[in-house]
Nucleic acid binder design. Structure first.
Length: 779
DNA sequence: CAGTGAGCGAGCTTCCGCTTGACTT
């Protein structure tokens, strides 16, 4: 019998809190939301003022049963879910589902897991805030309406199984918009002039000074002209200025900034970051990892302070309080920080150690002094021209927080310019010896594609999505095949380099690789067509400010200034009318593009989204004549509806090619999901990269078929006459047993070649039932 | 992913936020 039952959201949190509360308190967790809208059907009663139809989520049934038992035995139940909209709703659902007696139920909140905060919370219980709960219900109902009304429109008008939602559709839009900007982008070039000058000091030592011309030339001959002027010029220092500057540490980590830094510094995907952080959290090593707060508890600040004093001394300490600036932050937790600041490292996997170290450094640095720098600017005049060179240098006077941590940036071009660390001592009117001047053609950069992490950053700026959903959202839009994460090779580009070296001017062409992409998000054809369709028909949902504007309504509801179902009604009525109208009046949207006519047959060639993805079509399906049906061919990897040419599309119809016959059976080549292949006697042989399906000949194909046969023969380790269907084979993952179209793993301790038929049968019998996989059947 | 390369159409798909599960093949 427990006097007090405390329910929090996370089991790891429960463990910690139980320690703080001690005797008389049992702390348990509900694992987030326990109820949700009914999954099939709409889940909202439109006849009854949008009344939600809640059901206990299937995977929470056990939790709920357990909680009911515990609650019955408890004197007082403390609902300690997070202090935000969702947390308040969780508390309310708990109260409803567990049928808690109000006189024995208390609602408490805290936004840091420290002994003081918990004890303080217990001293100040309150009741559930119905307004806040209603704001959450409005949020939930709105998202269901948008998702479950728009998605079916897509099934009808574009392609089955697609989805739309307040968050995901805008995320895809960001990527599609960016891609269009890039397609439209025209690179321009100009000529950047840099010079190297020699400076001698009184001891006769010379050092080099790098400077950039203040002006860039748009034309090559302008640059050339300038270099000619420099041939006979004298260079001198016109002025030297020194200016102190400082740099401040970054704020402690939130979910989104952690995802960004882990992506840049450690190369983690956002879901990887969250999985690793989850393990650190469960191990009690860091605080909660889904947060939008940059706040640190006093306990944390004090221990960080002690650590800084121990390691670096008082000069390096500067206590700072940070304020969240992101839109719609709900701040139910602390920033992400080490639980114990004294631990610089932790035990664990390589990934865990690296992520922890990143968090530790960032947190420590956030309480450290600014770095002090001195910035020196030297202007250099050219006697024969009006343009000036400028050299800038930065010298670190005091490293401060940089001693432990430096935030990285997304600037992948590395355009740091010719800045150098130390500028040699110089004063006005000092003469300079020119050693080299180079004019280099530079091209303007196309807008960068999003990475997972930079997309999260943008969504957060727009106030779209929450810390708990950034990673899943990114996964969803990839699963729906709206977006793919890919590497793409760059292209070669030539650029001019004009060099002035000891009075001699020379010109050269150099090449560089440009536009190489690594792990970037690209929209697919489906993503583009769906975005266009939604932009055309559901502008309101696609507006970057849609979330912000409904959030304002939710805030008003939370303040008691609006009634939630009235707000929903004002949204639903006009929205639903649009849905009906689009269903009825809008045409199908398949992103169709007519490329031209096939010169051979005179038939029309077009591309569009087919039932299974992008396809090219040769000929039209005309109803009037009973001409032959149009031919179809799927687009290949790297081909896109918006950019494919007529020639490329026509090539698609050259396959499958019939090469001839072998052993009285047809030999054909085609390209499938796994690349080019030869088909013969219903068997498939990969063509590999070295053979081109358009030109490969029969001899080569036969060779490949024979090679495959040989390999298959070798793959058979054992067969049994009594059971011909059972074979022991050698596969990519080692030996396995194949029987009736199913495969079975051979236990490590057994040798494949020694297996008897009985051994095999035993393995098959004892094999666990095949996993249900993707398809889960209902009823 | 377990050795693949289909297509006359049944019945299904879908949202956003809270949380952690466990077939180890």
């Amino acid at each position: 019998m427990q006097e007090n039952l405390v329910i929090v959201e996370s089991p790891a949190k429960a463990k910690t809190i139980e320690k703080f509360l001690g005797e008389g308190y049992h702390v348990t967790s509900c694992m987030g939301h326990i109820r949700d809208l009914e999954k099939k059907d709409f889940g909202i009663d439109l006849e009854k003022n949008y009344q939600p139809k809640y059901v206990v989520t299937p995977d929470k049934k056990k939790v709920v049963t357990e909680l009911k038992k515990l609650a019955k035995d408890a004197e007082t139940v403390w609902l300690a879910s997070d202090e935000d909209r969702e947390g308040e709703a969780i508390a309310w659902h708990l109260k409803e589902v567990l049928k808690l007696d109000p006189s024995r139920t208390k609602r408490i909140v805290f936004h840091e897991i420290t002994k003081e905060a918990i004890q303080e919370a217990i001293k100040n219980p309150r009741v559930i805030d119905d307004n806040l709960v209603n704001a959450q219900q409005a949020r939930r109902v709105l998202d269901r309406i948008v998702g479950f009304e728009v998605s079916p429109v897509l099934w009808k008008k574009v392609k089955p199984s697609l989805s739309a939602g307040r968050v995901q559709s805008v995320a895809v839009r960001l990527i599609v918009d960016r891609e269009r900007e890039i397609i439209k982008f025209k690179s321009e070039s100009n000529y950047r002039v840099t010079g190297k000058f020699l400076v001698s000091d009184e001891n006769g030592n010379t050092s080099e000074l790098k400077a950039e011309l203040s002006k860039r030339f748009s034309e090559k001959n302008e640059a050339l002209e300038f270099l000619k002027k420099c041939q006979s010029a004298e260079f001198s220092v016109s002025d030297v200025t020194k200016k102190p500057t400082k740099r401040s540490p970054a704020m402690p980590f939130t979910t989104s900034t952690l995802q960004q830094e882990a992506s840049r510094k450690l190369g983690f995907s956002v879901s990887q970051t969250m999985a690793v952080a989850q393990r650190l959290y469960e191990g009690g090593k860091i605080t909660y990892m889904r947060t939008d707060s940059v706040n640190l508890s006093n306990t944390a600040i004090n221990t960080a302070k002690q650590k800084i004093l121990d390691l670096h001394g008082e000069d390096y300490l500067k206590i700072r309080k940070y304020q969240t600036k992101s839109k719609g932050a709900q701040e139910a937790h602390e920033a992400i920080r080490p639980t114990y600041m004294s631990n610089e490292t932790v035990e664990g996997s390589n990934q865990e150690r690296r992520l922890y170290e990143l968090i530790w450094k960032r947190t420590i640095a956030s309480q450290m002094a600014d770095a002090k720098l001195e910035k020196t600017t030297v202007n250099i005049s050219v006697s024969t021209a009006t343009e000036r060179f400028t050299a800038t240098g930065e010298v670190l006077i005091f490293d401060g927080f940089l001693k432990v941590y430096m935030e990285s940036t997304d600037d992948e071009n590395g355009n740091s310019g010719p800045a150098q660390d130390i500028i040699p001592p110089l004063k006005a009117n000092d003469a300079l010896r020119m050693s080299e001047i180079i004019a280099m053609q530079r091209f303007s950069q196309k807008p960068p594609r999003f990475t997972e992490a930079s997309l999260v950053k943008r969504l957060e700026e727009l106030g779209i999505g929450r810390p708990s959903t950034y990673a899943p959202t990114i996964t969803t839009i990839q699963n729906r095949n709206y977006v793919v994460k890919e590497d793409r090779p760059g292209t070669e580009r030539e650029f001019d380099v004009i060099t002035l070296d000891h009075d001699k001017i020379s010109e050269k062409k150099k090449t560089e690789i440009t536009g190489t992409e690594k792990s970037k998000l690209f929209p697919t054809d489906v993503g583009m067509v769906v975005t266009d369709f939604l932009m055309e028909n559901f502008k309101q949902i696609m507006d970057f400010n849609f979330t912000a504007s409904v959030e304002k309504d939710f805030d008003d509801i939370a303040e008691g200034e609006k009634v939630w179902n009235e707000m929903i009604d004002r949204f639903y009525k006009p929205f639903h009318e649009i849905v009906e109208d689009v269903l009825e009046n809008s045409g199908r949207s398949k992103g169709e593009r007519v490329l031209g006519t096939d010169p051979k047959t005179g038939k029309q060639v077009s591309v569009r989204i087919g039932r299974y993805g992008p396809v090219a079509q040769l000929g039209e399906a005309s109803s009037e004549t009973n001409e032959e049906k149009p031919q179809f061919a799927s687009l290949r990897n790297g081909q896109h509806l918006e950019t494919i040419t007529l020639e490329d599309a026509l090539d698609l119809f050259k396959l499958p090619r019939e090469l001839g016959e072998y052993e009285d059976k047809k030999v054909t080549v085609n390209i499938g999901r796994f690349g080019p292949y030869v088909r013969h006697d219903n068997k498939f042989v990969s063509l590999g990269k070295e053979n081109d399906p358009y030109t490969v000949e029969l001899d080569k194909a036969i060779e490949l078929i024979e090679a495959k046969r040989e390999k298959d023969r070798k793959a058979i380790i054992k067969t049994f006459d009594e059971e011909p269907g059972l074979r022991v084979l050698n596969g990519r993952w080692g030996p396995y047993i194949s029987f009736k179209k199913k495969n079975y793993k051979i236990p490590k301790k057994l040798k494949a070649e020694d297996l008897s038929l009985d051994d095999c049968k035993k393995i098959i019998e004892e094999a666990p039932a095949a996993k249900s996989g993707k398809r889960r059947k209902k009823k």
